[in-house]
Design a protein around this nucleic acid. Structure first.
Lengths: 100, 100
DNA sequence: GTATATTTGCCAATACTTGACAAGTCAATA
DNA sequence: TATTGACTTGTCAAGTATTGGCAAATATAC
């Protein structure tokens, strides 16, 4: 259930001695929600990531990457052919990139 | 919108000269639904894949892998850091495997 | 034209996710 | 041991998203 994204933002928040109570309102949510997000029980909305990156003075691209990795992981985690499927998906992504 | 899974099962169905009308009822759906699945406009339920594999006399693991690749692709397709995120996710999957 | 195969559009029904709040735990400390 | 502050958990209505089923449209062949 735990998420890399959640772990990361919790670590960042804690090293900066910020409380949920301080961060949550900046994201227009309550502490319960943010707590769940940090523990991987809820998804943060994608559009809040850049805002959060700013609050936590960190790189938004890295946060976005972690967030996306969690999404992927959620899809493949119990799948026997996760690796194979990732390869297939990867091939398609890179084909797409070439096209541009 | 098109899917690798959909393309595959359509190809298999056609080479075997089967009609939607023949296959759909075996999956307890109507032709419209199966048509949409083949075109990638709908998801097939995961548990139907083995049944479909049998109908189409093909390897269920391969179908499952394609299906999963489509799921992954749907998550990452418009993401700038798709590749990086896949790497991160991959690492986590393989960690998990080691644990067992 | 008719017949058969497939596709499309719609929308009610279902399933899934979220937001909001209240009540809970835990740790520190008066 | 009562109080306070930080965080967590549970619940559930409200909000979103997805699906199933049907009817109508289109396509192809004869």
């Amino acid at each position: 259930m735990e998420s890399q994204f959640g772990n990361k933002i919790r670590a960042l928040r804690e090293t900066q001695h910020l409380y949920l109570r301080q961060v949550a309102p900046l994201l227009e949510m309550d502490t319960a929600q943010l707590s769940k997000i940090e523990k991987g029980l809820r998804q943060i909305k994608r559009e809040l990531i850049p805002i959060l990156a700013e609050i936590l003075k960190t790189d938004k691209d890295q946060l976005q990457t972690l967030w996306l990795a969690d999404q992927i992981y959620a899809v493949v985690k119990d799948e026997k052919f996760a690796n194979e499927a990732m390869q297939v998906a990867d091939k398609k992504i890179n084909l797409k990139k070439k096209k541009k």
